[in-house]
Design a protein around this nucleic acid. Structure first.
Lengths: 345, 345
DNA sequence: TCGTTTGGCTGAAACATTTCAACCAGTAGA
DNA sequence: TCTACTGGTTGAAATGTTTCAGCCAAACGA
């Protein structure tokens, strides 16, 4: 039985075929591909012609086998669906593509198991580095992985005692900016729609808000009413309105992110509360649509593109494994974006 | 000169080391990893212990070298920044992770060169398949690539004479739904804020709108005023308002996507036009925040998650290279989401 | 006691590259 | 004429797996 009926299963071309076609050794073909300056002009042309004629495509796996670590880095996020990550992604891609590196995208869905599984596969692939927003608070397995030679950078999370490189945005400062803005507008009763404090970002933003109040010479306990939401969704943002103190109610709402602010805005509109006249509202993150809501939403901008770019940059140096590079933490400064939801236009 | 000062550069472990440690041959180690049922219980335990003790991680490149095509598929989109793609991505990831496949994400930025470059790299990596939204109208290079054995599925684009597999959403039907909805509400002068007709989606949606008008027994030329925008951004959406006919102006606005609708809504608010009382507005895509605008935006939903999932599914069968599988085009039906921007609540 | 079978394991070939020592034919210098 | 280079090329080793034919010892049947 011949295999005529399976023409698709013919062996893929290798450098041997090219070498034979061009009447030259495989070593030379390799040189044409990787160090053309070592090859005579005539030979160069001939070999290149053969490559083109045969439609030869070199095998990345074989290259990598010989040459050590590969040319694709892992990006392991908690949830691809989260707009925050998708807005960080372009920055990463941008920097990586400059270095001819491929981006392998993995989503842990906040499951430590799935995260571990992906890390294992990435290590098997001998990626030079991994950019990760860990699912859980424990990062010892990441430190271990780094010790084994895989570059590792934490994304949007502090570097935990500087055991790892990290990029993050200063959330305390962000909270401070928001607080100062609202206080500056004369608000003296501020509700903070926050997530649970075990989430680092939430705790930090609260801390910043508190500082701003103190800096204004006021008592945080009197000024701030914190409402803790079970989830940071629009629905919860709207529901939280019902839990605000009835008398001596707040005149301003600071939401821990824009998604929550969205729900709050909607809820206020339904109740006929006018924003910002009766209630000022602000969010955090400055996601793409914040500016486009009506009223447009005052928010604290996180430089997401730069965040991604810097993370990729850091990963590159970490993966290169310079001896004098130990660990580094890049902290970005957030920026206040004042819009119609706090300041009447 | 010894290399004591470079402990990090020690050779990576291979199966040889494991074999030596366990006092067994490499073949057996391989069997432990891939066909444990062939190995005696005792040996199995011993080898596994060695693997753990040494911290051995098998090399994916070496495996692939021997075994043919790899375990990561390419996803090549026009622009990672586009919310449409980021909302399709989870569906793809979801399906791929079930098959233990890695997702390599590439963004062509609408450049044919960059697209070609990425395709080349992906082919070098011997990916079993590629999911792509091509940058240009010509897809002959993709057909060629498929002929060489790389699975290929077009995303959000018809399969061009069925030369390739494709998944898409029925845009004509979507336009029809939108038109019927507005006509049903009694609108007889509809402005269509559209993109250029060379973009397939734009032409199709217009076609659908026209059909709806005809179906209602009306003259499309009288009912529809089409305004062509140079770019599908909120800014242009707002600017387009200035180009609407002054007298006998439209009573409804159909925007070719939600981003444009956003700009239109904002512009109308600035002019004091009340939505939907003075002007009904609807968008297309039903992106995440459409529901959360005020007023919430009526839109035509594209099943993005399913789109991604189906695309991945199709890619899997295409990559498997079943002989009896030729080409297939999956077309999803859009769904009308009626909200406050067209129907007073 | 002598084949025969069988479960386990081994050793080597194959996969497609890169890299490097060695080689070869000229050319230049002594 | 001999030696020393030099630019170009070669051939083979090395990389870490998988797979497969073959081998060995133990069990089994007669």
């Amino acid at each position: 039985m011949t295999d005529i009926h399976k023409p698709a299963e013919r062996r893929r071309l290798s450098m041997v075929d090219v070498a034979a076609h061009a009447g030259v050794s495989v070593g030379t073909v390799s040189n044409v591909l990787n160090r053309p300056e070592l090859v005579a002009e005539r030979t160069l042309r001939r070999v290149r012609a053969s490559i083109k004629a045969l439609g030869f495509v070199p095998s990345a796996p074989a290259r990598q086998l010989r040459g050590g670590s590969g040319r694709s880095v892992g990006v392991l996020v908690r949830d691809i669906g989260n707009p925050f990550f998708t807005e960080v992604l372009p920055g990463i891609e941008n920097r990586l593509s400059q270095e001819q590196l491929l981006l392998v995208l993995c989503s842990s869905g906040d499951s430590a198991e799935k995260e571990a599984h992906y890390l294992q596969i990435l290590e098997q692939h001998r990626v030079p580095g991994i950019l990760i927003t860990p699912a859980g608070p424990d990062i010892s397995h990441l430190v271990e992985l780094r010790r084994r030679g895989v570059g590792m950078v934490l994304l949007d999370r502090p570097g935990a005692d500087a055991q790892l490189c990290a990029v993050a945005v200063d959330n305390v400062r962000g909270g401070e900016l928001a607080g100062a803005h609202l206080l500056g507008l004369g608000h003296r009763r501020i509700a903070f729609l926050n997530g649970p404090h075990i989430v680092r970002q939430c705790a930090d933003r609260r801390e910043g808000l508190t500082r701003a109040v103190r800096a204004a010479g006021l008592d945080p306990d009197e000024v701030i009413t914190e409402v803790t939401l079970p989830a940071l969704t629009p629905r919860e943002g709207e529901a939280a309105l019902g839990r605000l103190p009835a008398r001596k109610g707040p005149t301003a709402l600071f939401c821990v992110n824009d998604t929550v602010a969205l729900g709050a805005l909607r809820g206020l509109e339904r109740r006929g509360v006018r924003v910002p006249h009766d209630m000022a509202v602000m969010g955090y993150d400055d996601v793409e649509f914040a500016e486009l809501l009506s009223p447009s939403l005052t928010s604290v901008r996180q430089p997401k593109h730069q965040l991604g770019q810097a993370a990729a940059e850091l990963l590159l140096t970490d993966a290169r494994g310079d001896v004098n590079h130990w660990h580094q933490e890049i902290v970005f400064q957030p920026e206040l974006m004042v819009r119609a939801s706090t300041v009447p236009q």
